[in-house]
Write a protein that binds this DNA or RNA. Sequence first.
DNA 1: AAAATTTGTTTGACATAGCAAACAAAAAAG
DNA 2: CTTTTTTGTTTGCTATGTCAAACAAATTTT
Lengths: 163, 163
Amino acid sequence: MKNQEETWKLFEQNPLTHSAAHYLITIHELLQEQGYARLTDIAKKLDITRGSASISIKTLKKKNLIIEDHNKFLKLSAEGKKLATSIEKNDQLLVAFFKEILLVKPEQAEIDACKIEHLLSPETAAKLQQFVQLITGNNPLAKKFLSTVHKQHLPAKKPASKS
Amino acid sequence: MKNQEETWKLFEQNPLTHSAAHYLITIHELLQEQGYARLTDIAKKLDITRGSASISIKTLKKKNLIIEDHNKFLKLSAEGKKLATSIEKNDQLLVAFFKEILLVKPEQAEIDACKIEHLLSPETAAKLQQFVQLITGNNPLAKKFLSTVHKQHLPAKKPASKS
DNA sequence: AAAATTTGTTTGACATAGCAAACAAAAAAG
DNA sequence: CTTTTTTGTTTGCTATGTCAAACAAATTTT
């Protein structure tokens, strides 16, 4: 009884909000894609106004997740990079699980993964990773089992009974 | 490219926020436990002030998810009930998956499930459900596979080599 | 060099979601 | 039938996260 009624508040204690997570990921991607990330690039990629970006980035700088250059170029702190990387990994992991194992439609798999990626605890992420690796690996038992899963997942059309 | 940069905004379009979801679930539980749900009962269960509850419940009434009695007793609308039920199911499903299949520690499994439960799409939830049912069911192949999973998941202690 | 554009900040607004504190009305206790 | 307690609302505050619009500074075009 205590459990459910206390657990729910931990949502707010998450290390990052969905919004903050995407600022970090976007900077990470921009740095890889073009070597630098300015406020305007981020705003464009996230499809928000520069004003919104300015304010959000200010707080992420205060929290030491983003660092600003002498020329207003933005980088991730060690902590920021760690968080961005782990969320990106979670996203890939979830997409793989949803698409390849559950056979969720690609579009939907990505939407769900995106909503959840920043909320997975390290423990759960690690264990899901092991699970996905095993079930999609070369283990013959895993292969057989996965094919059974996929057979039952695709039964939509029953072959027109005995009409 | 377009994909990631547009998907992230769908978080806000989710049918319910985490907070709203827990108001609905709490009312649902109170109705089952004691047959009625007053604002104070909800505030107590969620461990928030009556003032906060009053304001949040007002907006949930406007959204037609909560209905108020002539005596200020609260009920769920059809829509509210549907949402509460589906989130509760998602929670149980996720807890089962995390605990029984991934062997995540119970405490953590519940925290993760609680953060995610309102974000799973119906498609993904349905497919996860089928998957969990199959893998924890009586199918011998599933049993064998699950035991393989659990063997690799518990390798922490290697039996003190040949000391 | 002047004009135009781009970049980043600030301001005022709105929505969600919480708090504390003051208050009114209803219910329970004396 | 008063007094006390409980219940629910309102008010003023905080914080996040978005917008539009106005603006200053820097960069680019012409």
